[in-house]
Simulated assay, not measured.
Amino acid sequence: MATVELTTGNFDEVTEQPGIVLVDFWADWCGPCKRFAPVYERSSEKHEDIVFGKIDTEAHQEVAAKFDIRSIPTIMAVRDGVIVFAQPGALPESALESLIEQVQALDMDDVRKQLAEHAEHSH
């Protein structure tokens, strides 16, 4: 499956669906983003069960602001509507594959429980 262009309009709809969604925050002027693009594209072809989204931070600054994206590229992983990973920096292919395996291996019931506990403690 090729990468999906994310926009302000479809971002929530795509990232809130069940399953795994990766998001690549990028911009046209960013050299590392351009070098990372083919790596991301290759991974998207290997993992047809995962949505590989890309969002242009220049065109959709409000989405970048909402997630406090300060440097690009930033890779974010969302599983079942929950952000489980976000880190700036282009990943080498092996690290991207490793991230995908880790996200696939997560016990989402456990993740939700931890989030709920964290929310209770932060009030």
Rank of each mutant, 00 (worst) to 15 (best):
L106I: 09
I55H: 02
I72F: 10
F36E: 01
W26A: 03
Q17V: 00
P32C: 12
D49C: 01
D12G: 03
H123T: 09
D107E: 05
S94L: 10
F36D: 03
V51Y: 07
V103S: 03
E120W: 00
Q87L: 07
A105L: 07
L106S: 09
H47D: 10
G81V: 01
E117N: 10
A37D: 04
V21G: 09
K66C: 01
R42I: 01
T74L: 09
F36A: 03
Q17I: 00
F25W: 10
R35C: 00
V78D: 01
H47I: 01
H60W: 12
K113T: 13
S98G: 08
T8Y: 04
Q102K: 13
M76G: 06
Y40C: 06
H60M: 05
P38A: 04
V23C: 05
Q61W: 00
A119I: 07
M108W: 06
E97V: 06
E62D: 15
I55K: 02
K66H: 11
E120C: 04
L99V: 07
K54Q: 14
F11K: 11
G89M: 04
A37K: 08
L115P: 06
S122T: 15
K34M: 09
A86M: 15
I72Y: 11
S44P: 11
K54W: 06
A116G: 08
I72Q: 11
Q87D: 13
D110Q: 14
D80S: 10
F67Q: 06
P38R: 03
S71H: 09
R79W: 07
C33Y: 08
I20E: 01
A86C: 04
G31P: 02
L22H: 07
H123F: 08
S94F: 11
R42K: 15
V21M: 04
D68V: 12
P32Y: 13
E41D: 15
R35F: 13
T74W: 11
M1F: 07
A27E: 12
I72N: 13
G53I: 01
P32N: 13
W29D: 06
T7C: 04
A86I: 13
L91N: 09
I75F: 07
A90H: 02
D24Y: 08
D109A: 14
H47T: 01
G31I: 11
V39C: 10
G9S: 14
L6F: 07
K113P: 00
V23G: 07
E62G: 00
I50N: 06
L22P: 03
K113N: 05
K34V: 02
I100S: 04
K66Q: 15
A2S: 15
D68H: 13
E93I: 11
